[in-house]
Simulated assay, not measured.
Amino acid sequence: MKPIRVALAGAGNCAWSFSQFVAQAQAEPDTRLPGLMCHTVGGYRLADVRVVAAFDVDEAKVGRSLAEAFTAPAIAATGFTALGTDRDAPVLPAPLLDGLAGPLGSVVTPAAAAREATPEEVAKALVEHDADVLVIALPTGASRAIRMFAEAALTAGTAVVNCTPEEIARDEELARRFTQARVPLLGDDLRSHLGATTLHTALIELLLSRGLELSRTYQLNVGGNTDFLNLADASRSATKFASKANALRAAGATDVEGVAGPTGFIGHLGDTKLCFASIRATSVLGSEVEIDIKLTVEDSPNAAGVIANAVRAAKTAADRGLAGRVDGPSPLLFKSPPRGLPESEARAAFLAFAS
Rank of each mutant, 00 (worst) to 15 (best):
I4K: 12
A7I: 05
C14T: 07
F21A: 15
V22G: 12
A25D: 06
P29D: 13
P34R: 12
L36P: 04
C38F: 06
C38P: 00
H39K: 05
G43Y: 09
R45T: 12
L46Q: 08
A47Q: 06
V49S: 02
R50V: 01
A54G: 15
A54Q: 05
G63T: 11
R64F: 07
E68K: 03
T71I: 01
A72R: 00
A72Y: 00
A72P: 00
A76W: 02
A77K: 06
T78H: 14
F80D: 01
R87C: 00
A89Q: 04
P90N: 12
P95G: 10
L96T: 02
D98C: 00
L100I: 01
L104Q: 13
V122C: 09
V122R: 14
A123M: 09
A125C: 07
D130R: 15
A145D: 01
I146A: 09
A150F: 07
A153T: 03
T155D: 15
T158E: 05
C163P: 11
C163V: 12
P165L: 08
E166N: 05
T179K: 14
R182K: 15
D189V: 00
G195D: 02
A196S: 11
T198I: 10
R216D: 15
T217R: 13
L220E: 14
F228T: 12
L229R: 14
N230V: 03
N230D: 11
A232L: 06
A234F: 10
R236K: 08
T239R: 08
K240Y: 14
K240P: 00
K240I: 03
S243K: 07
A251C: 11
E257N: 04
G258K: 08
P262A: 02
P262G: 01
I266C: 10
I266F: 15
H268Q: 00
T282H: 10
T282K: 15
V284Q: 14
L285S: 06
E288G: 03
K294R: 10
E298Q: 15
P301K: 05
N309D: 10
V311S: 09
V311K: 14
A314T: 00
D319P: 03
V326T: 13
D327L: 07
S330C: 15
P338D: 12
R339P: 02
L341P: 03
P342A: 04
S344Y: 06
